[in-house]
Design a protein around this nucleic acid. Structure first.
Length: 257
DNA sequence: ATGTCGCGTTTAACGCGA
């Protein structure tokens, strides 16, 4: 079973690229972030015509997450993280697919830091960590994937010294990620490639992709009931080079039965 | 400080978020 995550940065602008990538790589499940589309403007029919069941939580202008599956129907479990009913941002979608619990998340960027946006990032992180602990306690197969907006280590940044004050790399942010993983999750891509430079995002600015000035911020966390099934994973980095590409590339893992 | 996208509306010699 192949599961992918892709921050599309605008699902309607990205539709030709998204459909081309789905046809080329055929993930069983695809988690999308940054739809940037209201609920009623999601391209449902085009996704279904491509052979996928789909569930999405849109929002005007910003955020928005979706889950696509051709491995069986999607049974939605929740469309928000618990812990703050006031938080109306569409950043989390959780569903059961083919006997597995999958969380699709878009963690806040948090810049500029410090400031209220960074506080929101850390409080969202805390809610994610609390919810993740509850999921682990269920002792079932869980995959938490999406755009975490965190580079967990220096190896995940093309020039770490330039990023130490950024919300994606500040000590508080890295500590929050490590605290989450330390609950018992497996960072799938880093586990497969312990020493390699692997990026999932290249800024639109300054020819970042051409210079390979990238960041690793899209991640898969696997519960202990899934981790032993991990056989492969990678980044479809060539997709970042396509015309009208997102600033992220799709990332994927393969799980054996 | 800068650059480039996508979205929204003020339809731009724009504003915001990323």
């Amino acid at each position: 079973m192949k599961i992918a995550t892709y921050n599309v940065n605008g699902v309607n602008s990205r539709l030709p690229v998204l459909l081309r990538w789905l046809a080329e790589t055929a993930p069983d499940v695809a988690c999308l972030q940054e739809l940037k589309a209201p609920q009623e403007k999601f391209p449902e029919q085009a996704i279904r015509d491509a052979g996928y069941d789909v569930c999405w939580h849109g929002q005007k202008s910003w955020n928005g997450v979706a889950m696509l599956s051709k491995a069986g129907p999607i049974k939605e479990v929740r469309r928000a993280l618990p812990g703050d009913p006031e938080d109306v941002n569409s950043r989390y979608l959780e569903a059961e697919v083919n006997g597995m619990l999958i969380g699709c998340l878009y963690l806040p960027n948090g810049n500029p830091a410090p400031g209220p946006k960074f506080d929101y990032k850390l409080s969202w992180f805390k809610r994610l960590t609390d919810h993740a602990a509850a999921l682990l306690a269920q002792q079932v197969p869980v995959v938490l994937t999406g755009d975490y907006n965190v580079m967990p280590a220096e190896l995940d940044v093309y020039k770490p010294e330039r990023w130490v004050d950024d919300a994606l790399f500040r000590p508080e942010t890295r500590a929050a990620f490590h605290q989450l993983v330390a609950q018992g999750w497996t960072d799938a891509i880093r586990t497969l490639y312990p020493d390699q430079k692997i990026y999932t995002f290249w800024d639109y600015f300054r020819n970042a992709y051409g210079r390979d000035a990238g960041l690793r911020i899209d991640h898969f966390l696997l519960s202990p009931q899934v981790a032993p099934r991990l056989t492969a994973g990678g980044v479809d980095r060539h997709v970042r080079g396509w015309e009208k590409s997102s600033d992220h590339a799709p990332v994927w893992i393969e799980l054996k039965k």
